[in-house]
Design a protein around this nucleic acid. Structure first.
Length: 582
DNA sequence: ATTAGAAGCGCG
DNA sequence: AAAGCGCGCTTCTAAT
């Protein structure tokens, strides 16, 4: 038994559950203990649509015994509570749990109503959902109490059939906690300084002008056209730009920046500059600012579990792709601080933990795993170590990485055996699992058919080549899946633990209800941003040190939760500042 | 006229 | 250098 047992021992037995659901025009609740779901005693809470009444009832119950709230979809239920100033400690998000459980226990399962796409519903269908008027929108019945109770019961059965139910329980709890965090972060928002963003844009692109491009960008475009000897060519159309480049004697096969950078021609420098400006303007320019930042807050839609590996995705606002240059626009409110933290080399550390690779864990025992690998003698430089490690986890076969990975195989055989085995399983059409049991998707039927055709007696050489390439592609995916997915689990555990620690720090100071962070978070430290291996917490200045300590404690707890006493460090770079700029 | 896909680039 | 994984978004282009 490798999973540290303390994390959940006793908790579920002691924490009561309350199932929320809709019944006709009402929102109703039914109590549920750990092993049985009470029937026939549903309590009416509020008319559907009466969020204030719903929130009052939930708040009272939360105050009384802080039950685990069991509901269909956090993205549908929780924003309404947060808007009314009510936060909950724990929930079971049945939609997210369903996806994990079904794929884990019956990987080939066909579509099921609970496999519904993640709730864009938060914005799109939510008003309809709790309207008093009955709606006939497909899939909404999943929010009914009956359906919710049925699903909760079915999930108990699936959980019992999981390969390792205790680990699976941890994963499900972490996934649900992540859903709470996502809703809370959207409610609170990321403090964003519009004037600073504007200054960054003006600095990079030149002053904004009424009709056309910003001034400096226009000048740069003119220099590009000058160097191309083509005064009218569109720089934003790759095919036309490619033709112009070739006419000017730059023999490239694409207009991508890495290919351009290989050529020594007067057009290269201004063109690369133009591309970077164009990117900034179109992706995060003034119109992005107008659309996504209101009252000093950036509120992206996070999509927990949106990536097959368990990473979060985002929808709208490009939350997960904010360029580094703009991080200076993340700005704490007056009297507050941004506490930022990121994990150094999370994925290889997680790999060392999964594989119980003690030599790799030793190499990871400083702040910099790559230097540790150099010290192990596997490679000569830090740069080589990085290339080798990334190559090992991504399945590189050529170039420097292809050359360096075999050296890692000699020095860290256990870690390499784990990813190599995952790759073989994928190539053979199998599914792989993360440390806590998230299962990779089964190969799609076309892939299976392609492999079968290639091994038939009438297969052509081309069939075989194509099939082999597809098999290797899938092997690289499953190789990376176990590592990326387990890293996502570590991060979820970190977030979940941190969230509760921050709540325990409590509200501070005078009433700051004027804050744009909303009724729940205007007076207390709160998670404001999360990106795979990095968090930003917005905290009152006098709590910033406590928050930094909480972030570190939560990382330690996450490491123990996944890997128990195995000696693998997860060192953090923690900063307390008025902005998130590095 | 709308839409699906590719190119390109930002993030981890 | 951009090789090897996972994403989202904008723009342009080709297909419907």
């Amino acid at each position: 038994m490798r999973v540290h047992p303390r994390a959940h021992r006793g908790v579920r037995a002691l924490t009561p559950s309350v199932v929320l659901g809709r019944a006709g025009d009402d929102i109703v609740a039914v109590a549920r203990d750990a092993d049985a779901i009470a029937e026939g005693d549903a309590e009416r809470i509020a008319r559907a649509g009466d969020d204030a009444a719903l929130a009052r009832w939930v708040a009272a119950r939360e105050e009384a015994d802080a039950p685990r709230w069991v509901w269909s979809d956090t993205a549908v239920w929780y924003p309404r509570l947060l808007a009314e100033g009510v936060r909950v400690a724990r929930c079971d998000d049945l939609r997210l749990r369903h996806r994990i459980l079904h794929h884990a226990v019956t990987p080939d399962a066909s579509a099921h109503p609970w496999d519904a796409a993640p709730a864009e519903s938060e914005v799109a269908t939510q008003p309809a959902l709790f309207d008093v008027e009955p709606t006939r929108v497909a899939g909404e019945s999943m929010h009914d109490l009956d359906a919710t109770v049925d699903e909760a019961r079915a999930q108990q059965g699936l959980l019992a059939r999981a390969e390792d139910p205790s680990r699976m329980r941890l994963l499900l709890a972490a996934e649900s906690a992540g859903a709470l965090v996502a809703a809370e972060m959207r409610a609170a928002g990321l403090p964003w300084d519009v004037r600073r963003h504007d200054a960054i844009l003006t600095e990079a692109l030149g002053p904004r002008r009424g009709g056309g491009l910003p001034a400096r960008m226009e000048e740069t475009a003119a220099r590009v056209r000058e160097a191309l000897g083509d005064p009218r060519v569109s720089l934003d159309s790759p095919p036309r730009l490619l033709r112009a480049l070739r006419n000017a004697g730059v023999h490239v096969d694409s207009t991508s920046k890495w290919e351009l950078a290989e050529h020594d021609h007067p057009v290269v420098a201004p063109l690369l500059e133009y591309k970077s400006m164009a990117r900034l303007l179109t992706a995060n320019g003034w119109s992005w600012l107008d659309e996504w930042v209101h009252e000093g807050r950036f509120r992206p839609v996070y999509v927990p579990g949106g990536v097959v590996t368990g990473r979060w995705a985002s929808s709208g606002g490009g939350a997960l792709q904010i360029p580094r240059a703009l991080r200076g626009a993340v700005r704490a409110d007056a009297g507050w601080r941004i506490v930022s933290a990121d994990v150094a080399q999370l994925e290889p550390r997680v790999l060392a933990g999964m594989a119980r690779d003690e030599r790799m864990a030793r190499a990871a025992a400083g702040a910099d795993l790559y230097e540790g690998i150099v010290a192990s003698g596997a490679v000569a430089t830090r740069a080589e170590a990085k290339i080798a490690v990334l190559g090992a986890m991504y399945g590189a076969t050529t170039g420097d990485a292809g050359r360096l990975v075999p050296r890692l195989r000699k020095v860290f055989p256990a870690a390499m055996a784990l990813v190599d085995a995952a790759a073989r399983t994928g190539e053979d059409g199998g599914v792989v699992r993360t440390w806590l049991g998230r299962t990779s998707p089964a190969p799609d039927p076309a892939w299976v058919q392609q492999q079968a055709r290639a091994s038939g007696s009438d297969a052509s050489a081309a069939d075989e080549t194509r099939a082999r390439r597809a098999a290797r592609d899938r092997g690289r995916f499953t190789r990376n899946f176990v590592v990326q997915g387990t890293a996502a689990e570590w991060s979820l555990a970190w977030l979940a633990d941190l969230r509760l620690r921050l709540a325990a720090l409590g509200a501070v100071g005078a009433d700051r209800s004027a804050s744009a962070s909303g009724p729940v978070f205007s007076r207390r430290p709160h998670l404001a941003f999360f990106l795979h291996d990095e968090v930003l917490v917005h905290a009152p200045a006098d709590l910033a040190d406590d928050v930094a300590a909480a972030i570190r404690s939560a990382a330690d707890a996450a490491g123990r939760l996944l890997f128990g006493t195995f000696p693998i460090d997860f060192p953090l770079d923690v900063r307390i500042d008025e902005s998130a700029a590095k």
